[in-house]
């Protein structure tokens, strides 16, 4: 019995749905839902996490990410300008910095920053400054490349128009190039912010007091206290509350700017 192409496609699709339904039925029948829920989403435990998981942990995650992003952005801009400089040593320093901090695990940098820098330089930072510097130092390396690509994506005619009106090179950079570059790189920068929000979970290594804990550290602590994964699952959901809207924003911005892709090498 020969089947037409269309009939064959229909049968094949039917088989796929069949397999899916069988899998769901098996899962529903044989999995011990009570146990699973107890391990991952115990409502009694969940209730005990509030409100601190919001007013302490989520708040700190947001503050740490914002501080790290702000410092990283400033540092990234400086590095990007150094990388585009006509002065050779500036370019070399920026390149070395970027390659180094993109190449080593962020966790190592945080450890070094938390324990090495204070002893080596006789400096004492409060937690917020430490987090801002540690996160920003790494984020700056990533953002530098994005910003550089954005600056180079500004059409040459814009620069020529500015110069022909008598603006100096630096005035042109500040007034025309950088504002336009940031418009172009808003979508990738939003993605950097998402990465940074997740990386902020690593700063537990610097040692945080109870009131300074962010989502991951808060979740780990609560996990030890209450046994079970519930705090970690809730922390995960709270990360999504930050990252999903940012991801949506990034895609929206990308569409609005006509999906102009900036190549980041």
């Amino acid at each position: 019995m020969a089947m037409s192409k269309r009939q064959r496609a229909k049968v094949f699709r039917g088989v796929q749905y069949g397999v899916l339904i069988v899998a769901i039925v098996l899962l529903a029948v044989f999995a011990d839902w009570g146990k699973i829920q107890h391990a991952f989403l115990d409502f009694e435990v969940a209730a005990k996490l509030f409100p601190n998981i919001i007013v302490v942990a989520l708040k700190n995650t947001i503050i740490y990410s914002a501080l790290g992003f702000a410092f990283g952005l400033a540092l990234g801009l400086v590095l990007a300008l150094m990388k585009l400089s006509s002065v050779g040593p500036y370019r070399w320093i920026a390149t070395a910095y970027i390659e180094f901090f993109r190449g080593v695990p962020a966790l190592l940098v945080f450890i070094a920053f938390a324990y090495g820098v204070p002893t080596a330089f006789q400096l004492r930072f409060d937690t917020y400054s430490t987090v801002m510097l540690a996160l920003g130092i790494v984020a700056g390396a990533y953002m530098a490349e994005t910003i550089r690509a954005g600056i180079q994506a500004v059409p040459k005619g814009q620069i020529e128009a500015a110069r022909s009106l008598g603006m100096s090179a630096s005035r042109t950079m500040i007034t025309v190039v950088i504002p336009q570059a940031f418009r172009i790189i808003l979508p990738p920068l939003t993605n950097e912010l998402i990465m940074l929000t997740k990386d902020s979970s690593l700063i537990y290594v610097i040692g945080l007091a109870a009131s300074e804990r962010e989502l991951t550290q808060f979740g780990r602590q609560a996990m030890n206290e209450y046994r079970g994964m519930t705090p970690i699952v809730i922390a995960g959901f709270l990360y999504l509350i930050i990252t999903l809207p940012l991801g949506y924003l990034s895609r929206h911005l990308e569409r609005r700017t006509g999906g102009k892709k900036v190549s980041v090498v």
Partner: peptide, 13 residues
């Protein structure tokens, strides 16, 4: 010295 370009080059932002 005023200059006018073929592609206008207005500051787009």
């Amino acid at each position: 010295i005023g200059m006018v370009f073929q592609s206008f080059n207005l500051f787009s932002h």
